[in-house]
Each structure stands twice: as C-alpha cells, then as structure tokens.
Design a protein around this nucleic acid. Structure first.
Lengths: 94, 94
DNA sequence: ATAAACTAGTTTATAATATAAACCACATAA
DNA sequence: TTATGTGGTTTATATTATAAACTAGTTTAT
C-alpha cells in the first residue's frame, strides 16, 4: 500500500504547499487570504511544514510591522510530487 | 475555500471507498488484503463510513464463520465524486 | 498623552481522530 | 480438552487539528 505522507495529507498544509509550488515567496497574510484559515491554525501548520523541511520561513519587518514569508524548498517540492503520485495511484486517477 | 469532506480525507477510508466504487460487495478480509490495515482499524473505519451512510454493511455467516461485506451506497459514490472534484481543484490537477 | 482599536502573528487548551493492542465468541485441529 | 485459528469489535493511548486567548507592538482618535 501507498502510505501517504502524513505531513502533506492534511487539508491546510496541502493548500499551503499546493499554493507555494506555483509561487515564490508568499507572505502570511496572503496565505490567510488564499486558504481562509485562522491565523492560529496557519501559524501552527507553517511551523510543521518548516520543521519537516518542506518550506523555508523568512521573518522581517515591513514598515513597522512584522512580516513572515514562506517559500517551498526543493525537498518540499519533491515530497509534494511524490504525494501526488501516490494519491493518484490510490484514487485510480490518470 | 473547498473544505474537503473530513470523512473521506483520511487514508484508510479513502482506500476503502476508492476500492468499493469499482466493485460490488466486498468482504472484510478482502479489504484487509487490499488496504493492508489492521483489523481493528478497518473495523472502526468501516463503522464510520457506514454511520455516514457512505457504505452499506451486510453481516452473515459463511460456513460457520462470521462474514462481513461492504458496498458503497449512492450517497457514498456522490460524496466520493465530489471529494475528487474538490481535491483536484485544491491541487490544481487537470 | 492616553485610550481604543488594529496588525501580524504565537501559544496553549480542548476536542476530535487515528491506531494498535487487547479482547470476544466461536471453530477446528491435535 | 486444550491449544490454535478465524473473523471480527472494543477501548486505551497517542497524535492532531483547531480556535480562543494571548503577545508585542502600531496607528488613530481624543
């Protein structure tokens, strides 16, 4: 059996990665916008993806406000591709 | 945002439904074989799919042994189709 | 200047979930 | 007749997901 990557097989994390693979640096509030998640939830899931090494997180200030940006890593891209392959297999897609 | 059906967005339940949509009545031990799940886990997830109305469960005896068979319901098929659509959208597939 | 409201997050308490281990009722074999 | 196997179910535990509460500051209005 396939055994889907459990870090990726979660809706919010999947939404995040899925968006990031087609983008460059994306900031926290943009991710809030596209995922419609709560800030707390987003914060936690970003940390998990970062700990897994799937995304890179850059913190700075934009004007006077804190500013967090994320970008998918090569490892993240690979795992995501892999996840897609296994998921398609499980679902008999393609 | 899409909000994936949480009953379906779980690996084992997804494996079960995904197999059942291309089959008729399938028995417990066959599902163990195709999913490689433990009996306990399979039992629980079958119950959840049944409670959700996504599968129908028929219990009988085969020889002297208990025998459990499952079949996807129309509702189950619909929800599964829906899940696929939303998932593809989330993942930018097709 | 001070309070009120807002920005951009993080931490943490709680509930929900997933999973395997332990169990059950019975059957068959030794 | 006891030991092993079948086909499950129940339940204890750990893990996870999530929103509420909080932090640390900023801007605006008074």
């Amino acid at each position: 059996m396939t055994k889907l990557n459990p870090i990726l097989h979660q809706e919010l994390r999947l939404s995040i990665i899925s968006f990031l693979v087609n983008a460059e640096w994306v900031d926290f509030m943009k991710l809030i916008e596209v995922t419609q998640a709560s800030k707390g939830n987003l914060s936690v899931q970003i940390s998990k993806l970062q700990e897994a090494g799937y995304i890179e997180v850059k913190k700075s200030f934009k004007g006077n406000y804190p500013h967090t940006e994320c970008r998918v890593t090569d490892a993240g891209k690979n795992e995501f591709e892999n996840y897609l392959i296994q998921l398609k297999q499980l679902l008999n897609l393609e």
